[in-house]
């Protein structure tokens, strides 16, 4: 997830193929998000499903353990617990690659679910509209990256996202504007622009991401 910290300014003196370059970068970035989405689905449909299927099978084995062997029953139960731990770790990895809720339900539900895992109170104002895997992925990780950079005990943050013409406009309020590069890292590859304003500790970061 590396990209240029900020997009080069578009001046009138730029070479004529700058626009073509940008289109190429955008396409590569969109393909990158598609790859991440596929990997996440593969993790779910393959390894995770096979591991969860082992748990009831072990449960059946437990019913055949003679009453006289409580140790054996306890060891199988221990194995089942360990499989749950493995699955929880796979879920964390899936979330880091491309959150399943983002894929299935969109930006609003995914950000609200994320807010349950953060220490800082996050208010989410995002409608049900869908914007495609690349734009939604970039917006989601821009927000979560920004939240992760907040010091513990920070005041509540507000996140809104809405369509304006052919762009998704993402606004974070109550965040330090110095976190803007975290947002830029995610959205600039897709041709997005980031602006900031307000106080050093409680300002706003706004990103406009073209979404066609």
């Amino acid at each position: 997830m590396t990209s240029d910290p900020a997009p080069p300014a578009d001046g009138p003196t730029r070479a004529p193929d700058a626009a073509a370059d940008r289109r190429l970068t955008c396409r590569a970035e969109r393909e990158q998000w598609q790859r991440r989405l596929r990997l996440q689905r593969q993790l779910h449909d393959g390894a995770s499903l096979r591991i969860s299927a082992l748990v009831p099978q072990l449960g059946v084995v437990r019913t055949r353990v003679p009453d006289a062997q409580p140790d054996l029953d306890a060891s199988i139960e221990g194995l089942q617990d360990q499989l749950h731990t493995v699955l929880q770790e796979l879920r964390e990895i899936a979330r880091a690659i491309y959150p399943p809720v983002l894929d299935e339900a969109g930006l609003g539900p995914a950000l609200r679910d994320h807010a349950e895992h953060t220490d800082v109170v996050v208010r989410v104002d995002v409608g049900p509209e869908r914007f495609g895997p690349a734009v939604e992925g970039a917006a989601y990780f821009a927000v979560t990256g920004c939240l992760a950079a907040l010091p513990p005990g920070s005041p509540p943050v507000e996140v809104s996202a809405r369509r304006e013409g052919d762009a998704l406009v993402l606004v974070l309020s109550g965040v330090p504007p110095r976190s803007a590069p975290v947002v830029a890292d995610q959205v600039c590859g897709l041709g997005g622009e980031v602006t900031t304003g307000g106080a050093p500790e409680g300002g706003t970061i706004e990103a406009r991401i073209p979404c066609g």
């Binding site: 499903l49 096979r50 299927a53 082992l54 748990v55 009831p56 099978q57 449960g59 059946v60 019913t63």
Partner: peptide, 16 residues
């Protein structure tokens, strides 16, 4: 829809 999990759960339900 996952055949492996469905079969496992089916056996467990019957065992219960």
């Amino acid at each position: 829809d996952g055949a492996l999990f469905r079969e496992g759960l089916l056996m467990l339900l019957q065992a219960a």
